[in-house]
Computed example of a mutant assay.
Amino acid sequence: MKEAASVSKAWKNRQQNDPYVRRAREEGYRARAAYKLLELDEKDGLLRGARVVVDLGAAPGSWSQVARRVLGDGASVIALDLLPMEPLPGVTFLEGDFREDAVLAELESRLEGRKVDLVLSDMAPNLSGIGPADQARSIDLAELALAFARDWLDPSGHCAVKVFQGAGFDELLTDFRRTFSTVKVRKPAASRAESREVYLVGAGLA
């Protein structure tokens, strides 16, 4: 119990001292993750000219917020997550497991045949604490996001997917390079230094 309390206290202290957490509160974003997407957009122009955006693993919604704020009312933003998400004006939200065929079919029906300009995936597995198993689940989710992008992305579109460095990463990176003309590995400043997370950013279907 003491160890759990100590971890909780350390987490609270880190949150209170985190400049991105403070900035998110001040600027009305639901999570510090907003600044990861804003930096990716600044470097790679992800949102430039996008009219249809799909945000996988969206809850609590900060990436959808960024997309809506940057693109305005003329764009369609479709968000999906296993967890519930408080409604966001101008964002269509689907609650469900992206790994299930029925959920994927519902997402595809919402597209109404439109190609997607930007596929975003900040999905992460529920952590079990068993490192190899958690890493495998992370890679699996990233592969599913990449498969969706192959099927639905406009040839000139972008795809940005979170993944954790470790087993399976090199193979996933190879798959990205086979799929896209340009691939970048990004570690945004808002990504915690101790985290193994990076973002694979693909542009232009090969």
Rank of each mutant, 00 (worst) to 15 (best):
A145C: 05
A33P: 00
D81Y: 04
P132W: 00
L88C: 10
K184R: 13
S76G: 07
A206R: 03
V198E: 00
S195E: 02
D134N: 01
A193P: 06
Y35D: 00
P87K: 00
P89V: 11
L120C: 04
E42H: 05
E112L: 13
D81I: 01
S6H: 06
K36N: 09
R25L: 07
E100Q: 15
V91K: 03
K184V: 08
Q135R: 08
G61V: 08
V116K: 05
A10R: 15
G129V: 15
F180K: 05
A75W: 13
T182C: 14
R110H: 08
A167N: 03
R48M: 11
Y199Q: 04
D117T: 11
S121Q: 00
C159W: 06
V163W: 01
L200F: 07
S191Y: 01
E194G: 05
A58W: 02
D101Y: 14
K187R: 13
R51M: 07
N13R: 10
A160M: 04
Q165G: 09
A10M: 08
R23P: 09
L173A: 14
L104M: 12
N126S: 09
D134S: 04
Q135Y: 10
S138T: 06
L205G: 09
A105N: 15
R186E: 11
Y35W: 00
N13F: 06
I130H: 06
Q135K: 11
A50D: 12
P125G: 01
G131A: 04
D44Y: 13
V185K: 02
R48V: 13
V70F: 10
D140H: 04
S64R: 02
L40H: 01
W11C: 09
S128H: 03
L172I: 13
I130M: 03
G90F: 03
Q165I: 10
F169W: 12
Y35V: 00
Q15L: 12
A189N: 04
A105E: 15
Y29V: 01
D44M: 06
K12H: 14
Q165D: 13
A5P: 02
V161T: 02
L172K: 14
E171A: 15
G28R: 06
Q165N: 11
T179A: 10
L107G: 07
R110L: 11
L38S: 01
Q135L: 12
E86K: 07
R51T: 08
L40Y: 05
Q135P: 03
A102T: 11
P132I: 02
R150N: 10
S109M: 09
F180A: 07
Y20T: 06
L144D: 12
V116C: 11
V183F: 14
T182P: 11
G96L: 01
L37Y: 09
A136Y: 02
G168S: 00
A50L: 12
Q165R: 15
P19Q: 15
I139A: 07
V66D: 04
W152M: 14
E197P: 07
L80W: 00
G74N: 12
G90Q: 04
R14N: 12
G157I: 08
V53L: 14
K162D: 01
L118K: 09
G90V: 01
G113E: 10
R22Q: 15
D101A: 15
V116R: 02
A58G: 06
L144N: 14
K184D: 11
Q135D: 15
Q65T: 03
D170G: 06
L127M: 08
D140I: 01
Y199M: 05
G204M: 01
Y35Q: 01
V66S: 08
Q165A: 14
A145F: 05
R14I: 08
Q15D: 11
